[in-house]
Structure formats: structure tokens, C-alpha cells
Design a protein around this nucleic acid. Structure first.
Lengths: 223, 223, 223, 223
DNA sequence: TATGAATGAGTTTTCATTCAT
DNA sequence: AATGAATGAAAACTCATTCAT
């Protein structure tokens, strides 16, 4: 971003007053602070606390985000974007080496955990518009990537065939969901173990029959 | 109050507790209502709502419980008791038929899910004294039962040996954790699938190496 | 009210614990305080100030009224009720002595001023639901009374025929509208003079032709 | 400002103000925007909204006006100036044709309504210094004009003699006072009717005896 | 000079907890 | 013992005013 500004300004000879570099930085700081605070203290963390952590006044949050729901939605988008990037990167690996398909899926799952994907859960229930276009778009991208990973693994005969993308996403989110108030580092020790166990359960051949029907994208949409 | 006690107690020397039947019923109703509301709406549900659901006045809650933390602790104990009973029942099955050990573990896990064991998570973080003697005692009993189940399964060669009771308890809680505001029935469709997948990952032989060390009872105590 | 309770209680022999006489008194105090404060300081007066004037905590206001709009609506209803009573009383006078019809109208107008009917204006614009059933009902009653008064005066040939009830109500409200921050006693000196002048303009025969069309009940409904 | 005037004025005797043309235009735009917004939304309209309507940044408002009260005072002065011009124009008419005195008064009153003189009321109460010299001067001019009109009409035997300028100014302001949030055009339909009725009540001969004493200039000063 | 950005003080509303009946 | 009522503290959000570019 900074470099982009630098590349355009010199051309004109008249420096663009760098309209609001600090404002942009503040905006990002606020999202980052909110993301941390939500992971650490839950989705009900007061805006004033987020503002303090970001090093700005509370009203500054409201300059950048219409209201609490708007801020939380941007945090969600931020997390989803990070996770989606991991999915797409893993997809490239699986495409390059089909035998590595399940391994790519593993890598993705653990990376998503490190991005705190589980923090999305409490935010999605905090009562904001789950049908916001930006959210739907982000979900589509994320699910497409995940679905792709699963298909590759399925095609390679490495993934049991009775599960769908919704199963993975929900379980992944739940297993990585923060326990606010409990020092997260403590719980982190477990998370990757549990994901690993869960992934072991996903491997082909299936070891048991699953109750219910696979969760599709549509199921997630409604949930 | 004091006078009434004075008139009956000193004479006999042996006080008859004779708790008013309706008072006891109220107390139980409150805990049951709180348990439902927490599952449905999260641990931040207002006390007034709980009281309304229980059909009592809000002040009555405070007659029975010192404060919000006290009430929530009793809800936690209620859930833990229910779950512990399932564990002990399953233990008897495993003892009777060692080949059914892993099956007993499965049964226990699904039963714990139906008791909403995941609802404990948000309550434990609500900031109440996690070292309360009653809680520690209940945890000991529950963990003893669970540990017993795992040992039976391990001894029967049905459970991979690199996991400990803490691994199971935390993952089980997380996978069954409610998503307040989302119709729980919808999510319930998934829960048993995910538990089943997770259990498949627990079966011997192990399919992958787990990161970190097994979670012991002590770990849980601290977390 | 107190007498009503007294009349029912003795019959049973067991006194009804007078459920919440103080609560009712508080509710009335809050409405009265709000009415005063709105007249004195405008419709934007903080709820906390109203509570202080009423001698209660701020949250007590919210126990009795859902929100600010609800409180203001009850203030409006209170004023409208008072004014309506004056209208109906004046109507009886006009019915008893048709020659006194215009005089009854005069009396009503001045009485409405003393009830601070003008204080309704800012409240009606404060952004609450103008279509609330209670409001519509109160308006119907008030307009019926006023319309009746005007009809009597018209029939007696004492009122010019080119004006309708909406004309009177709006002008009456505007002329008696408080000037928040200005000591009302000062302005009160004028109000009755201006109403008197306005009423003189209403007398038959008409002294000038009026622009526009008479304002009907329907006009007011929409405005 | 003073220093700038001092450097240029003494030498020539004829001061060239050379105010930055765009600055002056901004200043006027701001006042005009504020005037519109106050009429439409009330005196509590946020400064940011006024700035947006004026097409300037919010801080620009503070470059031109010390604070909110200062801006509102200038809006008041703007309205008073417009109205005063109407008064003085009507005065010329009355002087030219004494029989047209009351007609000139009528014309003035309706013109003042179109200038939204009633919008002054809420601004005068917003808690700013009512004794500011500029305000007093403007009031003097306006009252002088209005008083002149009334005297002409009185002299021509067309105006009842028991009313003073304060009566007219206050009633005129009240009857034309905006009802923020209510589409002003709707209410405008009534305003001229009510002024006409009020003017009819002002005509000689008096139809009733007025309560209280005529409101003089001094009364207004204090109110 | 003009402006977008920042902010602290203030307002509405909620809720755990205490009081009075 | 049980309850409706009362309340202060806290949280979301707004706005006049100041700052920095």
C-alpha cells in the first residue's frame, strides 16, 4: 500500500498529500485489535476495549465502522480472507501432486486453526446480518477452495466419501473455537492434536457409518 | 426467622431440615431453566429471562443462589452430573464385555452430546471460580469415569494409545458447543456426525502421529 | 384509585397487599415530571433529568416505559386527555345554552393553553410512531369534542364558516408552543392575548377571505 | 480581520476589503445551508450535516464561526435581515397610501412567514447569548419597522389599539414555527390561513377585550 | 486556507443485584 | 419465603470541537 502510493506520486511531480495514510493504518489497527480481542475475550468484548487496544479513541471506531456489527463483519471477512488464501495455496499443492492431496488438506486445516477460524463462530451468532453480500461472497470463495481440496483428496482415494464440505467447516470451526478468558496458548496445545485426530477420522477407508446426511454448502448457508 | 428456628431447634437438639417442598422444586426449576436458556441463547442470558422461564420472580433466583456465578456453577454441576452418570453406566457395559469397550465409549460420547456438555464451555469462561471445591469434585468424578472408559478401550486394543482423557473431554466439549442464536436443532444434525468422525480418529491403530503431548487430568485442571 | 382498592379489600376480610401503590405513584410522577420538563426544556430533555425530577433512578423510567418514545407518547396522551376533558365540559355548556357556544369555545381554547397543549408539537416530531392506536384514539376523542364545539358555534352563527377543526387545532398548538429555555411564565403573559386575538379572527362574520382550504380531520391525520 | 482592515483602511479612507471570494462564498453557503437545515430538521441539526449540505468540510464551519452558537446567531441575523427588508418595503407602501396600511401589514406578515421567521424560535432557545450586540441591533431595526407598520395602521383606524409590537412578533413567530420532521410543505398549507385569521383578529374595531397588557419592545428584550 | 480524522463528554438503554411489600 | 420494583454501573452510539495534513 505504501509502495503503491509511492509509485504513483512521483510521476506527477506534485505529491499527492497522502490523503490519509494514518487513517488507513488506524482502520487496520482497529480490525486487528478487534480480531485479537474477540479471540481472547469473546465476541462481546466492549468497543471501548478494542479502541484502547488499537490505541485510538472509541469514536474513531465509529468513524471507520457504522456500528459494532459492521466492525465484527469486517473482522470476519479478515479471518475468512486469510483462511481462503491458505485453502488456495493448498489447492495448488494438491493439483501439482495428487498423492499429496490429503496432506494438503491437513496443512490447510492446521493453517486455518492458526488463523483462529474458530473465532468466527461467536461472531456469526452475535446477531448481525448473515446475508450481507460481502459475507456471502467470502463464504463462496472459502467453500470453493475447501471443496476443491476435498475433491482432490476424494479423487485420490484418500478421503472417505461420506462427508461433505459443511462437515469439515463446522467441525473445524468448533474444534478451534476460542475459550474466552482461558489463556489461549494453553488451549492451543490441544487444538492441533484434536484436528489431527479428526483428520484421521476423515481418512479413507471409513471406519464407521455416519449418522445423518453429509452437510452441503446449502446447509451451511442456512445454518 | 431466627425466632422460629429458636423455638424448634434448641429443644430437640436435632434439627429437622424439612426444606419446603415447593422451595426445592423452585430451585430445581431455576437450574433447569438456566440450563435450557444457556444452551439456547448463550451464557450471557439475563437472569430475569431465566426467572421468567422458570416461572418465578427474579428475586427468587437470588434467594436460592448467591449471585449469577453461583447459579451458573450449579448449572455446570447439573450437566456434569448427568454426563457422569452416562460415563459410569458405560463403564459397567465395558466391564461386562471388554470387546464392547470402544462401543461403550462411543455411546458415552453421543450421550454426553445429548446432555449438551458443550454448553459448559461458555459458562466456564464467564469468569467464575474454576477452583471451587464442588467443581473440582465433579470434575474428578467425571474424569475418573471417562478415564476408566478409555483405559478399558485401550486395554482391548481398540483405542490408540497416544491420547489422554483431556484430549477427549476438550474435543467433545468443543464439538458439541452450542451456537447461540442458531437454531440448535439445525446444528444438531451435524454434531453426531462430527463426533463419529472424531471417534473414528481415536480408533487403533493410529493413522498419524499427533503433535504435542497427551492432555492429562492435570492439564485440564489448569486450563 | 385508593378508594377503589379500599372498597374491594374489606369484603374479603383479608386485605389485598396493595400490590404496588408506590409503583403506580412512581409511574405517574415520571409522566408528570416528563410533562413539566418537556414544557420547560423541550422534547430533547434527557431521560436522566426527568428521572431526577421525578425522584427516581433512571432505570425506573425504563421499568415503566419501554423506551423514550414510549414515555413521550404517554406524556402526549396525558396532555390530550386533560384537554379532551375540557372540550367535553365546554360542549356541555354549549349544549345547555347555544348562545354561549362561542364563549364555550373560547373557554376551551384558553383551558387547552393552560394544559400546555402546545407542548405536544415538539413531541410529535421527536420521531415516534404517530400511528400508534392509542394516539389515534385519543386524537379522535379530542377532535370529536373540538369539532362539536365548532359546530355548535357555527350553528349559532357565531363562528365563521370557512374554517375547520384542523385550523383551530394547529393554530392553537402553535400559539401555545413552549419556548424552551425561556422562562415560561414570561411567555405565558402573551399566550392568552394571542389566543384571544386569534379567536376574534374566528368570529362571524368573516373579515377576510382565507387562502387554501379548511383543514379537515384527515389533513391532521396525515400531517 | 481587524488588523487587515487597519492596514488598508486608514490610508485611502476607502477600504478595499478584498476578501477571498471563495471564502466569502463558503461563509454564505454555510449560513444558507444552516438556515435550510434548521427549518427542515430543527435547531439540533448536527454541524456535520450542515457542512455537508454546504458542500464544505466540517472544520471549515469552525474557520468561519467560533462555535455552534456563533453560527446559529448568524443564521438568526440572516433571517432577521430578510424580514426587516420586507418590513421596510411595506412601510414605504403604507407611507405612500395610508389607506393601504393594514394591507401593507398583511403583506409583511405573509412575507415574514415565507422567510421562515418562525425558525428563529428554536434557535433563540438553543442557549446562546440573547444579549449579543448584533442581535439587539437587528432586533431594534426589525421592531422599528414593524412598529412603524402598526402605527400607520393604527393611525388609519384599521388596527385595534390594544396590541403592541411584541404581540405581533411573538404570535407571528409561533404561528410560522416549523415542525421538524413533518414535511414543511404540508404544514405550509395552513400557515397562511392561520396568519390571515390572526390578522382578522387584529383589525379594528376590537371584538373582545384582551387579557394582560400589550407587549412592548422592552418585554421582548427580556423574554 | 480547507479538510478529513480524532476524540471525550453525553445520552439511551440494559442488567446484575438490592429493597420493600 | 416469594416477588415486583428500584437502582447504579456499564455499553453502544452521537456530536461539538480540536488536530494534523
Amino acid at each position: 500500500m505504501v509502495s503503491a502510493a509511492a509509485t504513483t506520486a512521483p510521476a506527477t511531480g506534485k505529491r499527492v498529500p497522502k490523503p490519509r495514510a494514518d487513517a488507513l493504518r488506524n482502520r487496520e489497527r482497529i480490525v486487528a485489535a478487534a480480531r485479537e480481542m474477540v479471540v481472547e475475550f469473546g465476541a462481546e468484548v466492549p468497543i471501548d476495549e478494542i479502541a484502547r487496544r488499537a490505541g485510538v479513541g472509541n469514536a474513531t471506531v465509529y468513524r471507520h465502522f457504522a456500528d459494532r456489527a459492521d466492525l465484527l463483519r469486517h473482522v470476519v471477512l479478515s479471518v475468512m480472507d486469510s483462511v481462503t488464501e491458505h485453502a488456495e495455496r493448498a489447492l495448488a499443492v494438491a493439483d501439482a501432486d495428487p498423492d499429496a492431496s490429503f496432506g494438503a488438506l491437513r496443512t490447510f486445516v492446521h493453517a486455518a486453526a492458526d488463523e483462529r477460524i474458530g473465532a468466527l463462530c461467536p461472531m456469526l451468532t452475535a446477531g448481525f446480518d448473515k446475508d450481507h453480500p460481502d459475507l456471502l461472497a467470502a463464504r463462496d470463495r472459502l467453500e470453493a477452495g475447501t471443496e476443491g481440496l476435498m475433491e482432490r483428496a476424494r479423487a485420490a482415494g484418500q478421503l472417505r466419501t461420506d462427508i461433505a464440505v459443511g462437515d469439515l467447516m463446522v467441525a473445524l470451526s468448533q474444534l478451534t473455537r476460542p475459550l474466552p478468558g482461558i489463556a489461549c496458548l494453553d488451549i492451543d496445545r490441544f487444538v492441533h492434536r484434536h484436528l489431527q485426530l479428526f483428520l484421521d477420522g476423515l481418512m479413507a477407508p471409513a471406519r464407521s457409518e455416519l449418522p445423518g446426511a453429509p452437510a452441503t454448502l446449502e446447509d451451511l448457508r442456512q445454518a
